[in-house]
Write a protein that binds this DNA or RNA. Structure first.
Lengths: 150, 150
DNA sequence: TCGATTAGTCTTGATGTCGAGAGAACGCCG
DNA sequence: CGGCGTTCTCTCGACATCAAGACTAATCGA
């Protein structure tokens, strides 16, 4: 048993990747139990809940989906009566996506349950550990963004 | 400016998710520069390089793809002459996927370049920080796996 | 004011992956 | 030795996403 694990770039990324997928699986299951077919459908509603009515592209940037995908997701949500499209009063090119009352109610309840589930994942960590993890991940994320821009 | 960031479960997961996608984008670009169409194609060859010849399902478990996806990826690699299928001598159900010499040479060179690229992402971290990040991520991953099994 | 550029949305076609199921082979147990 | 559940691969249909292009509207410069 070596005390020092392999912390090379590729291996750190592997661990990151593996844990990510484990959490994501848990995440997806939690969301499906709440009645959503796909992660994107939940994500769109959540953005609308926390950030207010948004144009299509703006939602897409936040959840890392293209406008085409958002169009489809909004179509699905609209078919269920959870959101509605309203053309912006100030810019007629943009379509603002609004939560309906039903949608608002649904996503509020779902998000709170989902938040509890996610809390479970990190439940064993002290607040120091949370802070450290947060700081390190944030830093790596920024670094990767910089590299992507370069 | 608060000194303590929001380290709730949902927010930690959000940071994890965002940084993951930043790295993944960088990862994908690096791999595409090396001439691979998709991440899966690279991943399959990499598994074969580091773990030796493998049956289809075994590859799939390692890279988190279903057997159907691996079949397709192996088809692509086989068409390029990078791998070949050999039926197992001991179990006639299984098809062992082997690297060809061309494939071996290609993935060795590609992996080493790719490893350098990934090293860049974590280049700013001290070895203590690497260890910490490694330990925390590993722990969360295990926790999520446990929750998935439960 | 007019023309060109930019921004925003939607449509369409392609693609990689998944999920379920079929078919073959294995191995255990009675 | 014979049956039965299991394991393995592949096929096929469905699907969410993406990428590129079309179309409309706004903006900015001349």
């Amino acid at each position: 048993m070596s005390e020092n694990p392999d912390t090379s770039g590729p291996h750190l990324w592997l661990v990151w990747w593996k844990a990510y997928h484990s959490i994501e699986k848990y995440d997806r299951q939690s969301i499906q139990k709440l009645g959503f077919a796909t992660l994107s459908d939940f994500a769109v509603l959540e953005v609308l809940l926390h950030k207010g009515p948004q144009p299509v592209n703006s939602i897409g940037r936040r959840v890392l989906l293209t406008s085409g995908s958002i169009t489809a997701a909004v179509d699905r949500a609209e078919a269920k009566g959870l959101v509605e499209r309203r053309s912006s009063p100030t810019d007629r090119r943009v379509v603002e996506v609004h939560l309906t009352e039903a949608g608002q109610e649904l996503i509020e309840r779902a998000f709170s349950k989902h938040a509890e589930a996610l809390e479970e994942v990190f439940a064993e960590f002290s607040s120091e550990e949370r802070d450290t993890l947060y700081r390190l991940m944030k830093s790596v994320g920024k670094r990767a963004d910089d590299l992507n821009r370069a």
